[in-house]
Design a protein around this nucleic acid. Structure first.
Lengths: 248, 248
DNA sequence: ACGCAACATTGACCCAGATCAAAAGAACGC
DNA sequence: GCGTTCTTTTGATCTGGGTCAATGTTGCGT
C-alpha cells in the first residue's frame, strides 16, 4: 500500500501538520498507512463555506494551511464566531453526523480529511487516537473558556489586544521574532470577522485598532500587515499577565 | 473486594450519578470494582472552594449532588464564570496536575472523586473510559460555544432567559412538568453568581428578572423559587428556537 | 425578639460601544 | 485608465447596561 502519497504522510512529512497536534502524533508506521487509506485533501478558496450548520458531515479532519472559522448564527442574523481554526487544528466530531456550526474558509484553505465511519472504526481499535483527541478537545475547551472571559468581561480595547495576541503567538514566524524582537504577521480576518469573534461591531474594531496604532502598541502597513514591537505591552493591553500567557 | 461501598457503585446504584454520564457508564463489574478502590467522596458546604486556580489538583471526579461553578478571575478582580457543574458533570483534567479555574460550591455539594494517577493508569488500560470522557468533553465544548453566543451577542434580557432555560431543563423535576405543564425550580445561584455567568452586573440581573416577572414570563415565590408557565415563551425570550432547543 | 450581615431591589445618572451616515481607500474586471 | 464593489475609516448621535447610592428583605446567631 505504500505509494507517493502514503510516504508523504510519515512522521517526517512536511506538508501535513497532523503529526504536530492531531490524530497521528503517536501512530506507528502501520497505523499511519491505515489512516493514509481513508485520507484525502480538500481545498477551498477564501470566503467559501466548508459546511453549513446542520448539514450532514461525513468527515473529520484538520487544517493543513489557511484559516477557517466556526460561527453560530441566530435567526435574526446576529452571528458569533466560536472558533478560529489555524493550521493543525482539528475539525469535526466523531459520533455526530451533522455539523454544529458553519465552517468557513477566511483565506485559501487546505484541509486533510478522513472519512468519518472508517475513522471511527480506527478509533475503536487504536486507543491512543481517542486519547489524543481527548487532549486536543480539552485544549479547545480551555481556549473556549478563556474566550468566555474575553467576551463577558473585557473592554473593546482589551478584546482587540487579546485577539491580536492569539494570532501573533500562533502565526508569527519564529525567524521574525528572533531577528528584531518584534513580531510581524498578517491579519487573516476582515474587520467584520474580528467583530464577530469579539462580540463587537466592525466600526468599534476599526476604531480600537486605530487607537492601538496611535498609542504605539502596534504598527500597521496597509490594512492587514501588523507589527507588534513589544509583545509584553500587547499582553498588558489584553489584560493578561505579561509573563504567564494564557494562549501560550 | 466486594463490600458495602463497592456494591453501591454498581450500575444499579442510586446515589452516585456517575453511571449516567460520567466515566463508568460502560464499565463492567470488574472495572467498577477497580474504580471503587480509587474512589472517595468529598463534601463541601455552600460557599466553600473546592480548588483554587493554579492549585495542585490530584483528583478527578464528578458531582453527585449540589452545584459547583468554574470561574476565572482577572488581576483587577473582574470574574467570569466559565462553567456550571450540575449533578453528574465531570471535573478535572487527566494529564494536568493543576486546576485551571476556581471551583466553588454554590450549594452544599457532594463529589465523587478518583485519585488522579491511578485513574490515568486505568484510562490507559480501559479504552472506553477515554472514549466516554471524549464524548463528555465534546458536549462541554459545545455548551461552552453556545455560551460564547450568549455572552457575545445576546441582550441582558435574553441572557437571563437563556440561563433560566438551562437550569430549568436540567434541574426541574419531571413530575412537576407532567402535572401542571409548567416548570418549577429553585435558583441555585445568587444574583451575583448569575451576573458572573452572564457577563452582567448583579443590578442588571435583578432588573431583568423583575422585568420578566412583570411580563409574565416567569413567576417568583421568594427570591429563588421560580415557576415557568410556558417554556416555549421562555425559549423565545432567550432568542433560541422554541422547538429545537440548544441545551436539550 | 432583636441586631446584624448577606442578599436583593430600585432609582438616578453616565458612558462605552452601538447605530446611522458619509467618504476614502483597495482590489478587480473590462 | 476607470467604474464597480468590497473593505475600512471616521464622525455624530443614541442607548443598553454600568455605576453609584439608597432602601428592602431574608435569615441567622445570640
Amino acid at each position: 500500500m505504500l505509494n507517493e502519497r502514503s510516504l508523504s504522510f510519515s512522521h517526517d512529512c512536511e506538508d501535513c501538520p497532523i503529526r504536530h497536534r492531531a490524530v497521528c502524533a503517536r501512530c506507528d508506521q502501520a497505523e499511519l498507512e491505515r489512516l493514509e487509506e481513508i485520507k484525502y485533501y480538500r481545498k477551498f478558496e477564501a470566503g467559501q463555506t466548508v459546511v453549513w450548520s446542520g448539514d450532514r458531515m461525513d468527515f473529520v479532519g484538520s487544517v493543513v494551511s489557511g484559516i477557517a472559522t466556526l460561527t453560530q448564527t441566530m435567526e435574526d442574523g446576529r452571528t458569533q464566531m466560536v472558533g478560529l481554526l489555524l493550521p493543525s487544528d482539528f475539525v469535526g466530531r466523531p459520533g455526530r453526523d451533522s455539523a454544529a456550526y458553519d465552517v468557513t474558509a477566511t483565506t485559501d484553505l487546505v484541509m486533510c480529511c478522513f472519512r468519518k465511519t472508517p475513522f471511527e472504526n480506527m478509533m475503536d481499535q487504536t486507543p491512543h487516537i481517542a486519547q489524543r483527541l481527548l487532549e486536543m478537545t480539552l485544549d479547545e475547551l480551555d481556549a473556549a473558556r478563556e474566550w468566555m472571559l474575553v467576551l463577558g468581561r473585557k473592554t473593546a480595547r482589551e478584546k482587540i489586544a487579546s485577539l491580536l495576541s492569539i494570532i501573533a503567538r500562533r502565526d508569527a514566524s519564529v525567524a521574525t521574532r528572533a531577528a528584531t524582537h518584534s513580531i510581524v504577521f498578517d491579519l487573516p480576518l476582515t474587520r467584520e470577522a474580528m467583530a464577530d469573534y469579539l462580540g463587537l461591531t466592525l466600526e468599534t474594531v476599526s476604531r480600537q485598532i486605530s487607537a492601538l496604532r496611535k498609542d504605539g502598541v502596534i504598527a500597521l502597513e496597509g490594512k492587514r500587515h501588523v507589527t507588534v514591537p513589544d509583545m509584553g505591552r500587547l499582553l498588558e493591553e489584553a489584560g493578561d499577565d505579561a509573563d504567564g500567557g494564557v494562549f501560550a
